[in-house]
Write a protein that binds this DNA or RNA. Structure first.
Length: 663
RNA sequence: GCGCCCGUAGCUCAGUUGGAUAGAGCAUCGGACUUCUAAUCCGGCGGUCGGAGGUUCGAAUCCUCCCGGGCGCGCCA
């Protein structure tokens, strides 16, 4: 049972007479929380202090009054009022035992279906087609998948949507590359690799030309900034000091930009083939854009090529998703919305929401639900008549609300796009989509060990596939080393080792990402994410594998044990503090799922699983299972172990992490 | 110039819309293996929550200022 939730509903009626005018009971019920220290019991209610202020009563008296009025004693021991007015709750042992027995028999492990299931679309992953996925896609993919799984378990109708970039400027580059640089044999043999090569080539050349063109200006800027720094008088006051430090920073930024441009130029000029191509195709950037425009305008050949390119690219993406165990329910790429875009802009213009500005169409003066201005303007049509991703996002809103009946739309996209999604949501509301809950589920950047965005040593972004390969490779080394050092010699064959390494390696990457608060940046560290100790996937997988090991050792079939326990009306016995803590922790699974879904924070769930694994270790240490004194105690403890394994399994599954029975 | 975010133990991070003595992991130090899997467990050390004011019964959390860092600012996504 979700005791926290139960306590909230029990306190609600007792609270009602003391509520200040116009305030909702929920905000006070939210002050019922897990006890921050076991000495205070299992849960604590903190609402007496703020309520007492309004009621002009001593908080301890009010607390006692509310406790007396609340119907609690069938679940909790007599509550204690402590300190300035905290109410401490302790679950009755007999209730805890009975509820734990129920949990053991419950397929949903106590997680209820929400009362009002919603249709929720979740935009996540959303890579560009024909550009290899890279480390930048990791968080949206991993967090988005976990968010979908958690909402789905809660009973919502979740539509995980892969908003593919299948219509953008990269296709113009690929079309140009295909028409000019194609290696036919390579394309026949492996279209995706060849298309990726073509994209890279065109992109490199395009960057080269741009860098060449920008270089004089950049040099000028660097000179000017350096000169300005040199000319600046010694700062006389704080303001001058700040200005100087800012100037120095700008000089540094300019130098970096110049260095980056030089690197791009050097990369091409060092390669005679590339240099020749660059010279032969001086206008390739503009021509690539023209190819994109032709595609968008319905050019027959480009359209045919686009249709030819797409399937193998999608299949390549699917290979990665399959490996990661990730599924989308829908794939409405940008191209899907293309026919609706003109209508979207026209409608916004008609309704006076959008206006023309310098030939473009923009939406101005957007405000967020709190009435705060959103930085704009929000461009929905370019001067040349082309549409932007904001236009596509608005068409997506219309489609998802009208065709999919979305009650809520979640965007699992990095935090730098906050302004963009604020504009999408604000425009959609002005457009009339007032009943839809738009949520930007934003996340921070993955940093390297140096604290800067995660790149290879040479400064390139890291491909997702090679990242996964490296994780599995490192995991295999750990698995093998551990297995080799087992006291009775290795237990696993090469196949098993490979399978475990896959689960541990990929699990490690996912878990490290999910265990951090999604809003913060985090440092990517192989050693930390694959560590066998601490808050890692490996530790969690091991904790569960240990339980499996116990059952193997004891020759006990878990399903049979559970069936017999249920059929016999078996009891859970709480004879030891560690046993009680374990039982309570298992009952908290529903609470953890609820809290994790509240603001879409998978790290709430990882914390819970870590606590559960620790609780099991303590329980396992303190309480003999297979060697328990009596048969009843043995069966009770095995049921606790079995339920622990099921909770770990269900929890890891919610995170998209595989479990392994032996490691 | 405008806007958003961040600063918590040596390191990496939690801290649940203001609650009791600020937590965890790693590292470090000390203990526990003829084991129910030691990929483990138990214990110790470690903090002016960037700084200064303010709000109140109570602040890491809210407000103001300062210091330090990151990011975003019409026709890329």
């Amino acid at each position: 049972m979700d005791f926290l939730d139960a306590a909230r509903s029990r306190f609600a009626p007792a609270l009602a007479p003391h509520l200040p005018e116009g305030e909702s009971v929920e905000s006070f019920l939210d002050l019922i929380r897990p006890a921050r220290d076991a000495q205070f019991g299992d849960f604590q209610a903190n609402f007496a202090m703020p309520l007492a202020k309004r009621a002009k009563k001593p908080p301890r008296d009010l607390a006692a009054e509310i406790v007396a009025a609340a119907d609690l004693t069938d679940l909790f021991d007599q509550p204690e009022v402590a300190g300035p007015g905290f109410i401490n709750l302790r679950v009755r042992d007999d209730v805890l035992a009975a509820e734990t027995a129920k949990l053991a028999a419950d397929e949903r492990l106590g997680v209820p279906i929400v009362e009002n299931p919603q249709t929720i679309t979740v935009d996540f992953s959303s890579p560009n087609v024909a550009k290899p996925m890279h480390v930048g896609h990791l968080r949206t993919t991993v967090i988005g998948d976990a968010v979908c799984r958690i909402l789905r378990l809660r009973g919502h109708n979740v539509i995980g949507d892969n908003h593919l970039g299948d219509w953008g400027t990269q296709f113009g580059m690929i079309l140009y590359g295909y028409k000019n640089f194609r290696d036919d044999a390579a394309y026949q043999a492996d279209p995706v690799t060849e298309l990726a090569r073509l994209y890279r080539t065109v992109n490199t050349l395009s960057d080269y030309h741009a860098a060449k063109k920008k270089r004089p200006k950049l040099t000028e800027v660097v000179e000017a900034k350096r000169q300005a720094v040199a000319d600046a008088p010694p700062p006389a006051d704080k303001k001058a000091k700040k200005a100087l430090s800012k100037l120095k920073q700008e000089a540094g930024t300019a130098e970096e930009a110049l260095a980056a441009a030089d690197a791009k130029i050097a990369a091409v000029e060092a390669d005679t083939d590339l240099a020749a191509l660059a010279a032969a195709h001086p206008t390739l950037a503009a021509e690539s854009r023209a190819e994109t425009a032709k595609l968008h305008a319905g050019d027959a050949e480009n359209r045919r090529l686009w249709e030819e390119f797409l399937p193998p690219c999608l299949a390549a993406l699917q290979t990665i998703y399959d490996r990661l165990g990730i599924q989308h329910d829908a794939t409405y790429g940008e191209s899907f919305y293309q026919p609706m875009l003109a209508g979207v802009v026209d409608e916004l213009l008609e309704k006076g929401i959008a206006e023309e500005s310098d030939g473009a169409v923009v939406v101005r003066d957007n405000v967020d639900p709190a009435g705060k201005p959103v930085p704009g303007p929000f461009v929905v049509r370019k001067t040349d008549g082309a549409f932007l991703y904001g236009t596509t996002d608005l068409a997506t809103v219309k489609h998802h609300v009208e065709e999919l009946n979305a009650d809520a739309m979640l965007y699992v996209v990095d935090s730098r796009q906050g302004d963009h999604f604020a504009n999408v949501a604000a425009t959609a509301r002005r457009w009339g989509f007032n009943d839809t809950d738009f949520r930007h589920v934003s996340f921070g950047t993955v940093l390297g060990e140096d604290g800067k965005p995660f790149k290879t040593r040479s400064g390139d972004t890291i491909g997702l596939e090679s990242l996964l390969d490296e994780a599995v490779e490192r995991a295999l080394a750990i698995v093998s080393e551990n297995d080799d050092s087992k006291p009775d010699g290795p237990e696993l064959d090469a196949n098993e080792r490979g399978d475990i390494a896959e689960a541990v390696g990929l699990g490690g990457i996912k878990y490290a990402d999910l265990a951090h608060n999604r809003e913060s940046d985090y440092k990517f560290s192989w050693d930390k994410m694959l560590s066998t100790t601490g808050n890692t996937a490996t530790y969690m997988q091991y904790a569960r594998a240990r339980v499996c090991g116990i059952f193997r050792m004891g020759g006990v079939d878990r399903d049979a044990l559970r069936d017999r326990f249920v059929a016999d009306g078996g009891e859970v016995l709480l004879t030891d503090p560690a046993e009680r803590a374990m039982a309570l922790q298992l009952n908290r699974f529903a609470e953890a799922v609820r809290e994790a879904s509240r603001d879409h924070r998978p790290n709430v769930l990882t914390d819970y699983l870590f606590d559960t694994a620790k609780a099991f270790s303590a329980f396992y240490e303190a309480c003999p299972l297979l060697k328990a004194e009596t048969e009843d105690l043995k069966s009770s403890r095995l049921i606790l172990a079995d339920t622990t394994a099921r909770v770990m399994h269900a929890g890891l599954e919610l995170l998209g992490i595989r479990v392994i029975d032996r490691m």
